[in-house]
Amino acid sequence: MMTSTKAALSHFVRFAPRSGSAPASAPSAAYAAYLRSLKRRALSIQLWQIGLVAALLVVWEVAPRAGWINPMLTSYPSAIARTFTRMLQDGSLTTHTLVTLSETVVGFVGGMLLGTFCAVVLWWSSYVYRVLDPFIVVLNAIPKIALVPIFYIWLGDIASIYAMAIAISVFVTILMLYTGFQAVDEDKIKLVRLFGASRLKVLTKVVLPGSVPTMIAALKVNVGLALVGVVVGEFQAAKAGLGYLITYGSQIFQMNLVMTAIVVLAVISSLLFIGIQALESTVLRRHGGVGGGN
């Protein structure tokens, strides 16, 4: 019987259980027991996780029917599943998803390219950086999302969404990349300069390659931000897309529409994130470095 302290110590050290009169071949048996207990633990954790989700779904289905919560506000898993399959079959779900997805991709790609260019300019001329620095800080402190209505007025319903996604990504990219450029190992830059490299060469041969991990980190952040920007833009302006479904659905109290859209949004979001993780591992493996040019 383990005392609570020993249970706590299993946090950072694993030890064999006491075996008083066990024979000399006991190590293998005890180790086998240990491995079995590990497997059991992993299994029980997974069961708990599945169980929690199942319990949530059950409560969600039962509670509105029992009158505990208002079904207008929450809908039921069964209704949501039905709406999901219906929309999938008649193609409307695919349309909306693609709209949002394309806007997001254009947004973060555009934002990253523009942001990288601006970061390079700021790195190139420290003079320009020092002049523009306070403006950038101020512009960064403004919640860009507050500009959604004004973008809508200026650019109309479609372009404003792209603009919002790009606008949000640009600032984050500039800040992250500029910091990343500055963090590239000084000694590496010195090395290349001693070989007579021009500023352009320093940029292309040391700073940019050395900032690949930072760029991937910025990409991760941008995808999330662009998706958010697009969805909020769609709240305001759109006639298609997942954000539109959410707003429209909640306005006509069709929560199954809202929930379907949210579920799809969560799935896309996770897929994009996983995709970038995969990209990260491939790139970093080839690249061989972790963090600003080590």
Binding site: F15, P27, A30, Y31
Partner: peptide, 12 residues
């Protein structure tokens, strides 16, 4: 005697 267990191997 101390037997040390990790998921990969056991060590004496």
């Amino acid at each position: 005697t101390l037997n040390y267990f990790t998921p990969d191997r056991e060590t004496l």
